[in-house]
Design a protein around this nucleic acid. Structure first.
Length: 282
DNA sequence: ATCCGGTTAT
DNA sequence: ATAACCGGAT
């Protein structure tokens, strides 16, 4: 029985993560940070963040510059802005109370399909279909007998996995399958030797057929993303920078020009007078 | 040089 | 459906 084995494995082996013993706001902050960023990198930033802004109302009063700076080098700083916006909406339109309803959660900035489901499960101990890449990979293997899931979850995948959610403690099922996927059924060199359900894993029974899926690896050096990241980091470290100073940071002027425009457009930087830039101050 | 990860805009 | 969006670890 998958459910019993996975949940009992979870109870014995789960990591002691700070967002597993906090309030709904703490869970929300952690989910934003964990979108596209591994646990180890999130941990220190999360701790400081919650110390500084322990409620949505407090974060709502911060400036974008403070928020972007506190986000540090987690990557994709638009997430920091969205979390900030989210805190403002929760404060102003929900009286500071994070909604428990999945469709309400979906309306908030930065909360998509995954995060809404994760909040229902992890913040409210409710029933929802939580499908992150770890859970999808775990199910692909033990249920479907393939090494890797599709790029995005199909309707078929969703309806079949929906039926696996137990009536009792559905949130434990979400947490346990995610943890098993993250710690044991890893993408590279899965630890089948310590897997509580190795004996009923379809992929294993088939002798680990390889997926021929080509997973495009995103390049980094010399990309627009690296250029943007370089500019934002420089502005974390300097209140104001002239365009001349910023130009020193990147050797392809046209690319830098584009980065400045998109950063302005995203609200990640602002123009301060003629040819000067800073993080947004209000 | 490759790996790991959701949301949003088009 | 596809593209754009980060950066530390290995």
């Amino acid at each position: 029985m998958l459910e019993k084995e996975i949940i009992s494995w979870f109870k014995k082996n789960k990591r002691d993560l700070p967002w597993r013993k906090t309030d709904t706001w703490g869970v929300l902050v952690s989910e934003f940070m964990l979108q596209q960023t591994p646990v180890n990198r999130v941990l220190p930033v999360y701790i400081e963040w919650m110390k500084r802004w322990p409620t949505p109302a407090l974060l709502a009063k911060a400036t974008p510059a403070q928020v972007i700076t506190a986000w540090g080098r987690l990557g994709y700083p638009r997430r920091a802005l969205r979390l900030h916006e989210c805190a403002k909406v929760i404060t102003n339109e929900y009286k500071g109370v994070i909604p428990r309803d999945e469709s309400e959660l979906r309306k908030l900035p930065g909360i998509g399909e995954y995060t809404a489901a994760a909040m229902v499960a992890f913040a409210f101990s409710g029933r929802s279909l939580v499908l992150d890449i770890n859970i999808r990979r775990l199910f692909a293997r033990i249920i479907d007998g393939v090494e890797s899931p599709k790029l995005s979850a199909t309707k078929d995948e969703k309806s079949r996995y929906e039926e696996l959610i137990p009536k009792k403690d559905p949130h434990l099922w979400a947490a346990a399958t995610m943890e098993l996927g993250a710690l044991v059924c890893t993408s590279q060199s899965p630890k089948c030797g310590i897997c509580p359900v190795a004996h009923e894993c379809t992929w294993r029974s088939l002798d680990y057929p390889k997926s021929d899926l080509i997973k495009r690896t995103q390049s980094w050096h010399g990309t627009d993303r690296q250029c943007r990241g370089t500019v934002v980091q420089a502005l974390r470290e300097n209140d104001v920078l002239t365009k001349a100073q910023i130009s020193q940071l990147w050797d392809v002027p046209s690319q830098l020009e584009k980065a400045l425009l998109t950063l302005l457009d995203d609200g990640l930087i602002e123009s301060r007078g003629k040819n000067k830039y800073s993080l947004p101050r209000n």
